[in-house]
Simulated scan of single mutants.
Amino acid sequence: MADKTIMLACNAGMSTSLLVNKMQKAAAAEDDDVKIFATSADSIDQEIEQEHPDILMLGPQVRYLLKGIQQKVQIPVQVIDMKDYGMMNGANVLKTALAAIAK
Rank of each mutant, 00 (worst) to 15 (best):
A38F: 05
Q46H: 11
D45T: 14
G68F: 06
I69F: 03
L8A: 08
D54Y: 11
D45P: 04
L66Q: 12
I69A: 01
D33L: 02
F37L: 12
D45K: 12
M14N: 09
K4C: 03
I6Y: 10
Q46T: 11
A9T: 06
A9V: 09
D33M: 06
M14L: 15
Q70F: 01
Q46R: 12
I6Q: 10
T16N: 09
T5P: 02
H52K: 09
M23N: 08
H52D: 05
Q71P: 00
I36K: 08
K67L: 09
N11A: 11
G13I: 07
D3H: 12
G68S: 12
L66D: 04
A26S: 05
A2P: 15
V73W: 04
A28S: 15
A9M: 10
D33C: 02
V20W: 10
V73F: 09
S15F: 07
L65E: 10
D31H: 13
D42R: 14
K72H: 02
A26W: 04
T39Q: 09
T16A: 12
L65H: 11
M14H: 05
K4D: 05
A28R: 12
L58S: 01
Y64C: 07
E30V: 03
I69K: 04
V73C: 01
M1L: 03
M23R: 09
N21H: 13
T5I: 13
V20A: 14
A2T: 13
E47F: 10
L58T: 02
S17L: 06
R63S: 15
M1A: 11
I44L: 03
